[in-house]
Design a protein around this nucleic acid. Structure first.
Length: 207
DNA sequence: CTTTGGATCGTCT
DNA sequence: GACGATCCAAAGG
């Protein structure tokens, strides 16, 4: 039985990153079922995002032009950009704007679509994140949610909009709501830009 | 509760 | 050779 909703298409992402970012709130990030491993669909509601632009954004990985690491940011709209940082963590972004113009939305936190993770989901996510003390700790950070969903460098560069792709973003009809806007976190430059959006009522927002 | 420092390594200078 | 779009545990109030 397919999850109700519509997969976001390339046109959705082919806009300025600061326009797309807040609209990704309350969409569902989905990692498709893997029958080989006996894994079901894993989906989380996006409740916190940040926008990263191109050369004009000093905090962006694309600030100094294309490199091997950031090449996915220069791909077509709807590309998944997964990068490795701090020697141990993966983080996931949705690439926005036309091909060749780098822009990406960092997905910083997920909430269980049904209000809480099902027992089956909790078992899978908990096995992958054994240090999580509480259920919210499974997905309340950009590297935590990648670990919980099993996202890593092998997913970098895939097309979120292609029918049949193993990772995609679903619109189930829930509007973005009433997000709060703040400066971005964990950066040392570009801290004046109000490019972080989150749902202030959701307990899964990062600290 | 808040603050602080260590972990850990691919990437770019 | 330096430094992260982070996380975690330990220590302090």
């Amino acid at each position: 039985m397919p999850r109700p909703g519509r997969r976001l298409a390339a046109e959705f992402f082919d806009r300025p990153v600061t326009e797309v970012a807040p609209e990704l709130l309350n969409k569902l990030l989905v990692v498709a079922a893997d029958p080989e491993e006996g894994l079901p669909d894993l989906a989380g509601r996006i409740v916190e995002v940040e926008a990263y632009a191109g050369e004009q954004d000093p905090a962006s990985h694309a600030h100094r032009g294309p490199t091997r690491r950031n090449r996915s940011m220069f791909g077509p709209p709807g590309t998944l950009y997964v990068y490795f940082t701090y020697g141990m963590h993966w983080c996931a972004n949705a690439v926005c704007g036309p091909r060749g113009e780098p822009g990406a939305v960092l997905i910083r936190a997920l909430s269980p679509p049904g209000g809480e993770w099902s027992p089956a989901e909790r078992e899978i996510l908990g096995d992958r994140r054994p240090r999580a003390a509480r259920p919210v700790d499974l997905t309340n950070g950009p590297a935590k949610l990648c670990q919980a969903l099993g996202l890593d460098g092998s997913h970098d560069g895939l097309d979120l909009t292609r029918p049949g792709s193993p990772v995609y973003i679903l619109d189930d009809g829930t509007p973005p709501g009433d997000p709060v806007v703040t400066p971005r976190k964990g950066i040392r430059v570009g801290t004046d830009l109000p490019w972080r959006w989150h749902d202030p009522l959701d307990p899964h927002v990062s600290r």
